[in-house]
């Protein structure tokens, strides 16, 4: 291991180390902690300008229920889920297929195709804004969940293809040679050899894609207009306009919006790290 592990016997050194890390952590998360504190303040306190001190009163229940009661935030949450989950599944399926083919099949244009996936995934969203919106309007999908699902699935497939291709390319060649020797079809190879081995990658990709799609704000405002479809990030921006200086409520909503990806991350952390390790490091 590097740096050299602090020996288990050196208890004071360990304690000092943990204290140091904790101190750095506090600094690191200070901005977020203060937002959490602000989400507990009363409106009067915010108006009086107490943004960073310890809250004078804790209004956890009042503020967080106000966010749900006075706005369509609950609706936005459901919308975000309806958009995000199918997108994640779509990305996993498509990128497993593309990643497998690009890593294990030689054909003319393989490299070009892969380059397009990778390159396209790095394009700024703005460059496709106008045509994508026109496309969705033309398909009659403007302001539907499907518009967002299709776009996110398409866009994230770029990154996911890079990820899956690298991951599958790093699997031992012998497995595929063996499969071929046994006369397995491409589909059998994919289903019986590849899929069982890429579970950690799928898990990692799932949480990454979930985070990207959930956090998207740009497309949320470009492709939707009504409350019935609008995802939670766009909803959050609504609140900013509505609650002019009720920062406590905006802060509460901000925290609410952050919870699902953070929770996802903590729940699937092992896969996340494992996936990144293999996907990125061996890539």
């Amino acid at each position: 291991m590097y740096p050299r592990p602090i020996p288990e016997t050196a208890r004071p050194a360990r304690a000092a180390y943990v204290a140091l890390v904790a101190a750095v952590l506090v600094l690191w998360l200070l901005p977020l902690v203060t937002v959490m504190l602000t989400s507990l303040r009363s409106f009067e306190e915010v108006m009086a300008g107490n943004y960073w001190g310890w809250p004078k009163s804790f209004n956890f229940i009042e503020n967080y229920t106000a966010v749900f009661k006075q706005t369509a935030l609950a609706r936005y949450f459901v919308n975000s889920l309806i958009v995000t989950l199918p997108s994640v599944i779509g990305v996993l399926v498509l990128s497993t297929l593309t990643g497998y083919v690009l890593s294990r099949h030689r054909f003319p244009g393989n490299r070009l195709l892969f380059a397009l996936f990778v390159g396209g995934n790095f394009l700024p969203a703005q460059i496709m804004m106008i045509p994508v919106r026109d496309l969705m309007v033309g398909l009659g999908l403007y302001d539907t969940y499907l518009a967002l699902i299709i776009f996110h699935t398409a866009f994230q497939t770029g990154f996911a293809t890079l990820f899956m291709r690298n991951f599958i390319a790093a699997l031992p060649d012998e497995l595929f040679q063996a499969a071929r020797a046994e006369g397995a079809s491409p589909w059998q190879t994919l289903w019986h050899v590849v899929v069982p081995l890429i579970r950690p990658a799928l898990a990692a990709l799932a949480i990454l894609t979930f985070t990207f799609v959930w956090n998207d704000y740009f497309w949320a405002i470009v492709l939707t207009q009504s409350d019935a479809v609008k995802p939670v990030t766009a909803g959050l921006n609504n609140l900013r306009g509505e609650w002019v200086s009720a920062w406590n409520l905006v802060a509460a909503a901000t925290i609410m919006v952050a919870i699902p990806p953070v929770a996802m991350f903590f729940l699937m952390q092992r896969h996340f790290i494992a996936g990144l390790t293999m996907g990125a490091v061996k890539g």
């Binding site: 919106r133 309007v137 403007y142 405002i221 470009v222 009504s226 766009a234 921006n237 609504n238």
Partner: peptide
Amino acid sequence: INNMDHEAHKTAIRSYLVVG
């Protein structure tokens, strides 16, 4: 009634007046 963000609406209106 569908509620929209004030700024987003300014952009959206130009699409929806034409289509939908």
